[in-house]
Write a protein that binds this DNA or RNA. Sequence first.
DNA 1: TGGTATAGTATGAAAAAAGGTACTGTAACG
DNA 2: CGTTACAGTACCTTTTTTCATACTATACCA
Lengths: 115, 115
Amino acid sequence: MQKNPVQCQFVAALDSIVGKWKPIILYHLLQGKPLRFNEIRRLLPDITQRMLTLHLRELEEEELVKRVIYPQIPPKVEYSITEYGMSLSPVLETLHQWGLAHVERKQLKKAKSEK
Amino acid sequence: MQKNPVQCQFVAALDSIVGKWKPIILYHLLQGKPLRFNEIRRLLPDITQRMLTLHLRELEEEELVKRVIYPQIPPKVEYSITEYGMSLSPVLETLHQWGLAHVERKQLKKAKSEK
DNA sequence: TGGTATAGTATGAAAAAAGGTACTGTAACG
DNA sequence: CGTTACAGTACCTTTTTTCATACTATACCA
């Protein structure tokens, strides 16, 4: 953690939600429905099993995501957003919105430079 | 850029503002006053010259930050937020707020576990 | 004359993050 | 009997990011 107080908040916040796939995992879980391991995998076609496991473990560690194991064979594990995790909703939502506008702006610029 | 449309927005947004120091640089510049290279450096005591240069270049590249060189000796270069950069204000603000609550929550938990 | 401030660049090393592949055990399906 | 699905783990490699240090040129100040 940084010493500078202003920096602390950003570092703390970003540590929790950054990681190549974390925002997307959280976004999907924020839809409300619990998802199984492989369901998330299918939603993120390019993620490796290893990365998904690692990120989910970190999110669980920070109590943003809850992991429930059903003792069955074949195994069933469900991931869902926690109440605390839901507090991230506005953050991810504004980020998502800005990203949307950012992509559009980029495409507009690209189109302009091409003609 | 990812292919999956949902992911795109996050990737695009995060690419722009993530980097160990970018949110903090932007935060300071969002205060409105243009800052010189070394002024920013003093605000971020732990950053290396190299990292500051790299991050500023990237922010400039994405038109979030404007760089103005005054032809003087010793050199004077001022960085300021662009109009487009200002559109990041709500994103950083919610992030900052959440970080604040996140830090408090962590401290509360730590205090509990210690008694 | 030597030190300080300015805004960087260059180079190489270290650390962190992500990726790739193979492997586990069990059950149901064909 | 071979294959697939499930939810991972183990091990190793590659890529990306960050860090550390030295160096540039010029002017001002004591």
